[in-house]
Design a protein around this nucleic acid. Structure first.
Lengths: 204, 204
DNA sequence: CAGCTAAGGGAACTGGAGACCCGTTATGAC
DNA sequence: GTCATAACGGGTCTCCAGTTCCCTTAGCTG
């Protein structure tokens, strides 16, 4: 029974993988708003109809791509020093955004998120996962009494990435290693000053 | 003579103003990638052909809109205290991004910049102007010896905005007044720590 | 291994964004 | 005032993204 059950085996998964890979390629080449689902289908060697039926719109496809991206994660460093961990994180983000393929892909998915609620939700989940992954290095610094009690770990991690994304999307300034290091140092300095404590304001 | 001279008088300027206003309205309502130049023409009560001829593409229109936006500027505060100036700046940005109309417009123009080089250049000019406008309050703090010599004023101002734009575009977290104040305090703390000095790294 | 059906694929169709043509209007020079 | 022409505007055409139709293929079940 339950004849109407879904059928996730073999072909379906293969098609999804091929289409997502093709979608990433196409996003890198043309960007979000020049993306054509027929082109994605051609690259994936899959029927155009299939792409339209399963994902419907460009934004829907990007949302699925983001869900897929959230699942594959990079291990964080754990040097035992807050500033070194933050610098490692900043440099990882910097390398990602500067990389022609990855950088273009991130720009594209961020654009998609501003255009479609599903893509936005997928993007926010993606970053929530990434931030949660790196938060422990701040929590450990608090436990080591390197940072004030009650420091918002997620907020510190966000503070590291923010200047890099700001340059990528807003100001257009170059994103070099020095920028990444400065972002990490700024976040550490602000955290030390107690700016990111949850309960109260800064204790200066 | 120079009969072939351009003709910027009366009608041309009126048309430009009407089209730019209509474009902003349409961007706020539909966002960048759902924007239709024919729809803009209708709103501006202007011929569709005119819009296509003068601006060509959606991105070109947005680039011109940004040029126009860069010209009208808001006066900055000058309280005589770095943290108060930065807080005022942060709150101004916060109010702008949270405002339904302004927030949507900024999202749209940032999206446009990721899709088109001309729009990107216009956006970067826009922010260069805004940052240069607020840099003096940091320079004064340096002169008052509130901040280390050689502090990169523009970088401090960017640091104030970055967390707010990061939330708007990337993480999707709410952008409230507390966020703005924290951004200002973090930038001030990092600047005090010497993170933004041009010549060397941090002097901690 | 047989058959049921979920999922994929080819091809024709359609609607609307954007390009083009050519007549009309208003600006600026004299 | 009048004339040359830059700029506007309505109507029409084209082309392709997205939809629909219906047939084919391949996963699961027993």
């Amino acid at each position: 029974m339950t004849v109407g059950a879904t059928r996730p085996g073999g072909r379906t998964a293969r098609v999804r993988a091929a289409v997502l890979r093709a979608a990433a390629d196409a996003l890198v080449e043309h960007g979000f708003n020049r993306l054509d689902l027929a082109d994605v289908a051609r690259r994936a060697e899959v029927g155009k109809t299939t792409v339209y039926r399963r994902w419907g719109t460009v934004a829907g496809l990007v949302a699925d791509l983001l869900t897929d991206m959230a699942e594959q994660s990079l291990p964080r460093t754990d040097t035992g020093s807050l500033i070194d961990d933050l610098r490692a994180n900043a440099r990882l983000v910097q390398r990602t955004l500067v990389d022609p393929r990855q950088g273009a892909l991130f720009r594209a998915v961020i654009v998609a998120a501003t255009c479609d609620p599903r893509a936005a939700e997928a993007l926010h989940r993606f970053y929530a996962v990434r931030i949660a992954e790196w938060a422990p290095c701040v929590e450990q610094a608090v436990r080591r009494a390197e940072l004030p009690q009650g420091t918002d770990a997620a907020e510190v991690i966000r503070a590291v990435s923010a200047p890099l994304y700001y340059r990528l999307l807003v100001s257009g300034d170059p994103i070099d290693r020095a920028t990444a290091d400065r972002a990490a140092e700024a976040a550490a300095a602000a955290a030390h000053a107690g700016v990111y404590t949850l309960t109260s304001g800064p204790n200066r």
